[in-house]
Nucleic acid binder design. Structure first.
Length: 797
RNA sequence: GGGCGAGUGGCGGAACGGUAGACGCGAUGGACUCAAAAUCCAUUGAUCGUAACAGGUCGUGAGAGUUCGAUUCUCUCCUCGCCCACCA
C-alpha cells in the first residue's frame, strides 16, 4: 500500500495548478465576484516567516471555499518592495536595491508556491516597478493639484538611526516603529499630505464598514474628534490676541491663567515685553532637549510664567497670567489653552504646583472648597454671574456666543509627513523653479525614475542621497523652460501600499492606474485579512487615498475595504515573540519539508481562534500530520466502499454544514476539529464513493494538495478546487431519536432516548418514570416542568 | 491614567442561556516487536466512594445578582495582553 508522502504529491499539484491557471480570476465571468485580499509582503532577505502564514492561509482557505461555492474569486499577490532593509543592504554590500529585491522576490515566490497558496499570479504587482510607481506618483500629483500636498517647515519626528523624518503614525511611544530607536524632534522642511482634511470623512466612512468594533474604535481614537469653541483672549497693552481651543467654554469664568506651548509664536513676538525672558528661554531649551520618552516618564508639570504680560479673560475682563509649559502641545488646537484648574485635572495639578487660584464654576451642590482634585463631573454653573444655574450644555452655547467665540471641531489626527530622506522610495515628482515656484512634473513625463547613485547612505542632514546626483537634480522647469531642480525627497513606505489593491484589478494597464470597468467589476475588496498593527498606518492611509480618489471620481466606491479580518500573532513555543536571539523561531519551510504544506496549513488553522494570540507548539503538528496520514490510508483501501449506515450520512452532512458555516465566519480551528471528528466516525465503517468525494471537498480549502491527489485517484479529471461545494441535506442531519437530558432542579440525573416529536406530557411521564429521577423526586411536590424539545427536560421540585 | 479584549484540565483549546472540558497534544496501561520507533486499542478535571461496578460532591480568575438552569447575561473586584497616552 502507498504511504502518504507530501513531498511527492505537493510539488506535482503546485505545478499543475500553475500550468492550468486554476486560480486566475476571470474579469469577464458572469459569476458574482469576491475580492479577497491579504497585505502584500515586503520581500525581505530573510524570506517570509510564520507571521505571514497566518493571514495568507486564512485568506487562501476562505477564497478556496468561495470559489467552490460558485463565486468568481480574485485572490491576488504582489510585493511592497520599497523600504529600508533593501537600502541598508545596499549600503552594506553595495548591491543595488533593485537587484537584491528581485532576488528576494524570486525566493519568496518559491515559498508561497510551496505553501500551496492559490494566488492569481497573473496580477502580480511590484511597488518598485517604474510601471507601477508611475501611478503612485500620478496619484501624488492629483493630491498636489487638489491642494492636499504641501511643503512646510515644522518640528517633526526624526529617527536618528534611519536618518529620516517620520509620520506621527510611525512613532510608537516615542520609538521608531521600524528600528526601535528613540525618536527626536527636528525642525525640517518636509512634504505633508493633508490627511486632516479627510478626518471627518474617515470618521463617517467607518460607520458604513463591516469591520470589527475594536478596529473602528482604534481608528476613531486616532482621529480623535472633539467639539468645542475657539475663543480669543486679548493680551494687555499689546496688539496680540491669544487664541485657544476649548471643549469647555462653560467653565470660562474659572479660567484663572493661560498656558502656551513652549514653541508658541507669542514667546518670540512679545520677547521685549517679557521681563524674565532669559528664564523663559532656558525653559524652552530644556524642554526641547527632552525626548518624547522622558516626557512620558516624568509627567510632573513644569513651566515658567511669562512675566510682564497678562491676558484678559473676555468673559469678566479679569487680568490673568500667562505661562509657557510643555503640557500644552504645539501641534494640537492653537497651541495655547485657557486653564481652568477647578475642572481640569492637568490644570489643577499645575495650579497646585504654581499656587494659582482655583475657582469652582461648576457644582453638583456637594463639592466644596478647597478642592482636593479637579471636579470634572456634571452640575450647574456657579460663580458665573448671569450664567449661574445654567446646565453645562446650555452654558457652552451661551458663553461662546457671549464672548464672540466660534464653535469648532478639532482632531487629534496630524497631517501625514510624507517625505523621506532616503534613496529607496518613489521620487516625489515635483520641480523647484526659482521663477515659477513648485511645478509638478507633467503627467506624460511620469514616471520620474530613481537615478543610479554611488552612495545610498543617508546623509543625515535632512537631504536625501538623491541630492548629490547633480545630473538628475538639475532639470528644466516644465512651465517656463528655465532651470529647475528636482525634489530630492522620496515617498514613505506607505505610498505604494495605499493603492495596490486598485492595481490588481487591472495590473497591466498603461493608460490608467486601472480601467473604470475593471474597478467597477472588482471593488470593493470584500474581505481584507491583516494585522492589527496596521490599523492606524496602512489601513488609515489607504482609506484616505481611496476617499480622495472617490471624490475625484477615479474609483467607484467610497471605501476600499468592506470587511477587515484581523488576526492574532503567532508566538514561539515559549509564549514569547519569535526572535532569532531567543531561538524560538519556527520556520515554515522546514515544517513543509518535514510534514508537508498541508500539515503546516492545517495546523496553523488548528492553533486557536484566528484573532487570538497563539503559541506555536512543535508537538502539535503531529496531530494533524497523523490525521492526514489516516485520511490517505482511508482512501487507499477499496474494501471500505459500500452501502453506508444512516449514521455515516448524518455525520457527513452535519460536517458539510459545520465546515461551510465556520469557514465563512473565520472559525478555522473548529473546522479542523469537525473534520477530525468526521474521520473518527467513518474510519472503520462502510462508506460510499459519494461520501468519499464529499469528504475530500470538505478538506480541499484547508489541505489543497492531498484533497486534489485523492480526488484524482478516485478517477476525477477536473480539479477539486473548481468543483462544486456540497450542499448539506437538513433532513439527514436531523435525527429521529434524541437523547433528552433529564434534570431535577437543574442537575443532570439521567438521559432518555425519545422520538423526535414526542408530546410534552409524554416526555414528562417518561422523565418521572426514570429510576434515578424517581429517587430525587420521590416524596416531593413537583412545581413545574421545563421542556426544551430534543434537548433537555428540567423538573423543578 | 484612558480604551479594547481575555482569564476553562498538565498544555493548545470546544461549548445558539440547556449533559462543561468537543478536537488535538501530552501522560498512563495494553497489543504488535528480539527490542525500539511508528501504528492500533483503552484510560485520562479534582475529590469522596466501592472488592469491582454503581454512585455522590466540587469544579470555567474572586464575589454578588438575574434565571428552572449561567463558561455564556448584569454589577463589583483581581490578574494578564494589546492599543493610546499631558489632545485642552
Amino acid at each position: 500500500m502507498k504511504k502518504y508522502d507530501p513531498s511527492k504529491i505537493e510539488r506535482k499539484w503546485q505545478d499543475i495548478w500553475e500550468k492550468d491557471g486554476t486560480y486566475i480570476a476571470d474579469d469577464k465571468s458572469k459569476k458574482e465576484k469576491k475580492y479577497v485580499l491579504i497585505e502584500f509582503p515586503y520581500p525581505s532577505g530573510e524570506g517570509l516567516h510564520m507571521g505571514h502564514l497566518r493571514p495568507y492561509v486564512a485568506g487562501d482557505t476562505y477564497s478556496r471555499l468561495l470559489r467552490m461555492k460558485g463565486y468568481e474569486v480574485m485572490y491576488p499577490i504582489g510585493w511592497d518592495a520599497f523600504g529600508l532593509p533593501a537600502e541598508n543592504f545596499a549600503i552594506k554590500k553595495g548591491i543595488h536595491p533593485s537587484i537584491s529585491t528581485a532576488k528576494n522576490i524570486a525566493n519568496a515566490k518559491v515559498q508561497l508556491k510551496s505553501w500551496g497558496m492559490g494566488f492569481d499570479w497573473s496580477r502580480e504587482v511590484n511597488t518598485t516597478d517604474p510601471n507601477y510607481y508611475k501611478w503612485t506618483q500620478w496619484i501624488f500629483l492629483k493630491l498636489f493639484k487638489a491642494g492636499l500636498a504641501y511643503e512646510a517647515k515644522g518640528l517633526i519626528n526624526w529617527c536618528p538611526s534611519c536618518k529620516t523624518g517620520l509620520a506621527n503614525e510611525e512613532v510608537e511611544g516615542g520609538i521608531c516603529e521600524r528600528c526601535g530607536t528613540t525618536v527626536e524632534k527636528k525642525e525640517l522642511r518636509q512634504w505633508y499630505l493633508k490627511i486632516t482634511a479627510y478626518a471627518e470623512k474617515l470618521l463617517q466612512g467607518l460607520k458604513t464598514l463591516e469591520w470589527e468594533n475594536k478596529i473602528k474604535i482604534q481608528q476613531e481614537n486616532w482621529i480623535g474628534r472633539s467639539e468645542g469653541a475657539e475663543i480669543e483672549f486679548k493680551i494687555l497693552n499689546s496688539e496680540f490676541w491669544l487664541k485657544v481651543f476649548t471643549t469647555r467654554p462653560d467653565t470660562l469664568f474659572g479660567a484663572t491663567y493661560m498656558v502656551v506651548a513652549p514653541e508658541h509664536e507669542i514667546v518670540s513676538k512679545l520677547k521685549s515685553q517679557i521681563s524674565n525672558f532669559s528664564d523663559v528661554e532656558k525653559y524652552i531649551t530644556e524642554t526641547k532637549n527632552k525626548s518624547e520618552e522622558e516626557r512620558i516618564e516624568n509627567k510632573e508639570k513644569t513651566g515658567v510664567e511669562l512675566k510682564g504680560i497678562k491676558a484678559i479673560n473676555p468673559v469678566n475682563n479679569e487680568e490673568i497670567p500667562i505661562f509657557a509649559a510643555d503640557y500644552v502641545l504645539s501641534g494640537y488646537g492653537t497651541g495655547a489653552i485657557m486653564a481652568v484648574p477647578a475642572h481640569d485635572e492637568r490644570d489643577f495639578e499645575f495650579a497646585k504646583k504654581f499656587e494659582l487660584p482655583i475657582k469652582i464654576v461648576i457644582s453638583d451642590g456637594k463639592i466644596s472648597e478647597p478642592l482636593h482634585e479637579a471636579y470634572v463631573g456634571d452640575g450647574v454653573l456657579v460663580n458665573s454671574k448671569k450664567f449661574n444655574g445654567l446646565s453645562i450644555e446650555e452654558a457652552k452655547e451661551k458663553i461662546t456666543e457671549f464672548v464672540k467665540g466660534k464653535k469648532q471641531v478639532q482632531y487629534r489626527l496630524r497631517d501625514w509627513v510624507f517625505s523621506r530622506q532616503r534613496y529607496w522610495g518613489e521620487p516625489i515628482p515635483l520641480i523647484h523653479c526659482e521663477k515659477c515656484g513648485i511645478v509638478p512634473v507633467p503627467e506624460e513625463e511620469l514616471p520620474v525614475t530613481l537615478p543610479e547613485v554611488k552612495k545610498y547612505e543617508p546623509t543625515g542632514t535632512g537631504e536625501s542621497p538623491l541630492a548629490a546626483i547633480e545630473s538628475w537634480v538639475n532639470t528644466t522647469c516644465p512651465k517656463c523652460g528655465g532651470s529647475g531642480k528636482r525634489e530630492t525627497n522620496t515617498m514613505p513606505q506607505w505610498a505604494g501600499s495605499s493603492w495596490y489593491y486598485l492595481r490588481y484589478t487591472d495590473p497591466k494597464n498603461e493608460k490608467e492606474f486601472a480601467g473604470e470597468e475593471l474597478l467597477k467589476r472588482w471593488l470593493p475588496v470584500d474581505v481584507y485579512f491583516g494585522g492589527m498593527e496596521h490599523t492606524t498606518l496602512h489601513l488609515l492611509y489607504s482609506r484616505f487615498w481611496h476617499e480622495f480618489l472617490y471624490d475625484e471620481k477615479f474609483v467607484p466606491t467610497p471605501e476600499p475595504y468592506k470587511r477587515r479580518i484581523p488576526h492574532g500573532i503567532i508566538l514561539g513555543a515559549d509564549g514569547e515573540k519569535m526572535s532569532k536571539s531567543r531561538g524560538n523561531v519556527a520556520n515554515p519551510d522546514a515544517i513543509v519539508k518535514e510534514f508537508g504544506a498541508d500539515a503546516l496549513r492545517m495546523y496553523e488553522l488548528f492553533l486557536g481562534p484566528h484573532e487570538a494570540t497563539v503559541s506555536w507548539n512543535e508537538r502539535g503538528i503531529l496531530g494533524v500530520s497523523r490525521f492526514l496520514e489516516r485520511v490517505y490510508k482511508l482512501f487507499q483501501s477499496k474494501e471500505n466502499e459500500g452501502e453506508e449506515e444512516s449514521m455515516v450520512r448524518g455525520a457527513l452532512h452535519e460536517t458539510i454544514k459545520k465546515v461551510g458555516e465556520d469557514i465563512e465566519v473565520f472559525k478555522f480551528n473548529t473546522v479542523v476539529s469537525a473534520l477530525m471528528i468526521l474521520l473518527n466516525q467513518i474510519e472503520n465503517k462502510k462508506i460510499s464513493r459519494e461520501t468519499k468525494e464529499i469528504f475530500l471537498k470538505l478538506l480541499a480549502p484547508l489541505t489543497p494538495h492531498i484533497a486534489e491527489e485523492l480526488w484524482h485517484e478516485l478517477g476525477n479529471e477536473n480539479s477539486i478546487h473548481t468543483s462544486a461545494w456540497p450542499v448539506f441535506d437538513a433532513t439527514l442531519v436531523e435525527k429521529d431519536l434524541f437523547m433528552v437530558v433529564v434534570q431535577v432542579n437543574g442537575k443532570v440525573r439521567g438521559q432518555i432516548e425519545v422520538a423526535k416529536n414526542i408530546p410534552q406530557e409524554e416526555m414528562e411521564r417518561l422523565a418521572l418514570m426514570n429510576e434515578k429521577v424517581k429517587s430525587y423526586t420521590e416524596g416531593k411536590t413537583i412545581k413545574k416542568f421545563i421542556y426544551v424539545p430534543g434537548k433537555i427536560i428540567n423538573i423543578v421540585v
